[in-house]
């Protein structure tokens, strides 16, 4: 099935930042979006970046995943990426646009996919783990929910999807492929983000974290407190009844949660 040569998939990528060293790198979620695009369309996957990217930044690492090229929409740091992307995407015939959930540096608001969807009038699916198939103009998308749950959605093309950390990990990038890949510059009209110019930015201060004090007397209580579900949710406690009834109740739950189908 994959790769599907008729499908046109693009991933939008940003420059990432390593949490420990602060060095430029490929952003983890964006790289997963590229991985998914590569799985779906092979080397025909399109990858788009807005900014002043150069090969030594994270862009080189995306190229190293085996991309022949990255479309580089040249815009300086003060530019607003959204109108640039809207202009560019309107001129293409893409079926699916993949992005990360939010960037690893800069504003990192996570708003880009939503604004794009609004401007393009496309549906948006957030936090996807996989796209399983595309048939008759509809894609079967696996959405990641908390605690490992998955929900299968059928979405008409074209659409935008943000890729969750639950998606397949990005492949290793190779030095040779990064060296061969091209950054295809496109000169575009990039409007300045006026709103942001007025903002003041400071380095984030680590906020004191409220310690979660477990008011427990015994080790068993502390263990319970440490391992309990984060939020109280419905459910039932089955103490009586036969093994069969208990097993059936468990099975029903597994089916309703989508673990067993």
């Amino acid at each position: 099935m994959w790769p599907d040569s008729d499908l046109k998939v693009a991933s939008l990528v940003s420059n990432g930042q390593h949490p420990k060293s602060g060095r430029s790198r490929r952003a983890s979620q964006d790289a997963r979006a590229v991985e998914l695009a590569l799985k779906m369309t092979g080397r025909a996957a399109r990858v788009i970046h807005v900014g002043t990217g150069h090969r030594d930044s994270g862009l080189g690492q995306y190229l190293g995943m085996g991309l022949p090229e990255i479309t580089l929409l040249n815009a300086d740091e003060n530019a607003d990426a959204v109108p640039v992307l809207v202009d560019h995407l309107k001129g293409t015939d893409l079926d699916i646009v993949l992005t990360g959930i939010h960037a690893e540096q800069g504003e990192a608001s996570g708003m880009v996919p939503y604004l794009l969807a609004e401007h393009l009038g496309w549906p948006l699916v957030s936090h996807i783990a996989d796209i399983q198939k595309v048939e008759g103009g509809k894609a079967e998308v696996l959405q990641a929910l908390p605690r490992g749950q998955r929900r299968l959605l059928r979405v008409p093309l074209p659409f935008i999807a943000t890729v969750d950390n639950a998606a397949a990990e990005a492949r290793q990038y190779a030095f040779g492929a990064a060296r061969r890949g091209k950054l295809v510059d496109e000169v575009i009209d990039a409007p300045v983000d006026q709103a942001r110019l007025e903002w003041e930015s400071h380095p984030a201060k680590p906020r004191p974290k409220r310690l979660h004090v477990a008011k427990a007397k015994s080790a068993a209580d502390r263990f319970k407190a440490a391992t309990a579900k984060p939020q109280g949710q419905g459910g039932s406690v089955l103490r009586d009844g036969t093994d069969l009834e208990k097993a059936t109740a468990i099975m029903d739950l597994l089916i309703s949660e989508g673990v067993v189908r």
Partner: peptide, 23 residues
């Protein structure tokens, strides 16, 4: 395998990634 194919097995890719990002 590593520089052209990007196929360092098991923890190899992670270790190399760490070396690049954090020395």
């Amino acid at each position: 395998l590593t520089l052209e194919r990007g196929e360092t097995p098991n923890k190899g890719a992670e270790v190399l990634d760490n070396l690049i990002a954090t020395d």
